[in-house]
Design a protein around this nucleic acid. Sequence first.
DNA 1: GTATAAAAAGACAAAAAAGTCTTTAAATAA
DNA 2: TTATTTAAAGACTTTTTTGTCTTTTTATAC
Lengths: 146, 146
Amino acid sequence: MLSKASEYAIRALVYITIKNRDAVRPGYREISREIEAPEQFTAKILQTCVRNKLLQSVRGRGGGFFFDPESKPLTLIEIINTIEGMSLFTRCGIGLSKCSDTAPCPIHKEYAVIRDQYQQLTTNTTIDNLADKIISGEGVLNRMFN
Amino acid sequence: MLSKASEYAIRALVYITIKNRDAVRPGYREISREIEAPEQFTAKILQTCVRNKLLQSVRGRGGGFFFDPESKPLTLIEIINTIEGMSLFTRCGIGLSKCSDTAPCPIHKEYAVIRDQYQQLTTNTTIDNLADKIISGEGVLNRMFN
DNA sequence: GTATAAAAAGACAAAAAAGTCTTTAAATAA
DNA sequence: TTATTTAAAGACTTTTTTGTCTTTTTATAC
């Protein structure tokens, strides 16, 4: 299960993407309100994204967050890795420190299948994919858009 | 991802099962040592299991933990539910409070598939299944058994 | 230039999870 | 009966995660 920080990050970045498509650069107040996440905590998470070049920002009047239109699509796994690291995709299913294909825990194989599927999903899904679904009405972020 | 408490619980209960098959009722000191988990924390987790009737114990000299041989096989999901609840199997993939089939988050369907597979795995896997694998040498708990 | 509006930064606080310590209760062996 | 061994119980501590508050920096508008 993702940390709250990762969840907020994904929701925030989807929101930013949607607004950017209308040439708007939202600020963290608006973002946190719309994705229903704590304001300052959202700000801090977005700072982390900016520091790690997943996202850009401008300060001052009329500032806000935005994506470089030139940059390649951002995958969920990149965000997760930035916010909480990769342990979700590497950790043993029952917490053995030295579980591996050669010395597997008794649920290793079955767990690895599921864990790898999740890794595939987060690798193949981009923030743009999610934004598309919101805009097409296939999915919901929280509030409605207009 | 499971909490550490759930991981320790599963490992401890597998260990107890294996020892019980040799008519031995291990204590929490031995258990925690063998599964490489903190001693008192393991004791507390086992207490929770006993209180919730997943497991039995006897106090005093020669006491320890054991399973009622009459009781039906214990599944992983029962243990997880006892230790940390079911949120792992119900929570939205990006943390939306009101994500559902009718108002799905943009990754709802794909995430639900994986989450349900994990639920199936933990529902269909019993502590005995894991113990069997250890004994047959297909899997490893941590130290070797003899 | 000055006021204003925004993100950045960092210290701080609260909550949750993980882990420890000490005392009590219960069972057995002697 | 008494000593010993074991689990139970509960208070306590530490660490991690989550969240807040205050100040600083930077950009823009006037």
